[in-house]
Nucleic acid binder design. Structure first.
Length: 107
DNA sequence: TACGTGGCGGTAT
DNA sequence: AATACCGCCACGT
């Protein structure tokens, strides 16, 4: 296991439970690079596997569960609204474009 | 409370 | 090796 920044980021994101969200900055701190929130975003942007490839034993990287520190949804690849829809599907409440605080991981 | 701004770390080319 | 590119954040109006 390479201990590259991005590997840790991917692993951390993979561990986010369904129905919960965390922020780019929180991830940066969690992997020992406080202040590297933007870098986390640029890594997730190039997410190698946003969804679970069928027939694979590798887990998907649920990058849609990563939102901004102000709880706005943030960016995502693909059509606008995709990320929000995925979150809603998982039972995440979104109020005025923001994730409700009850879904924030570690809060 | 809402918006603008500068600074920021890591990746990709 | 250097620079452009960002799915951000903290802070000041």
């Amino acid at each position: 296991m390479r201990d590259l920044f991005k590997e840790k980021v991917f692993q951390y994101v993979t561990s986010i439970p369904k129905g919960k969200v965390t922020s780019y900055g929180d991830i940066a701190r969690a992997v020992g690079r406080p202040g590297a929130a933007r870098a986390v975003g640029s890594i997730l942007k190039r997410n190698p596997r946003p969804f679970d490839p069928s027939g694979s034993n590798r887990k998907a990287i649920p990058c849609h569960r990563v939102v901004r520190a102000d709880r706005l949804i943030g960016g995502y690849n693909g059509p606008v609204g995709t990320k929000e829809n995925l979150l809603k599907k998982e039972g995440v409440k979104i109020i005025n474009g923001r994730v409700d605080t009850e879904h924030i991981l570690n809060k």
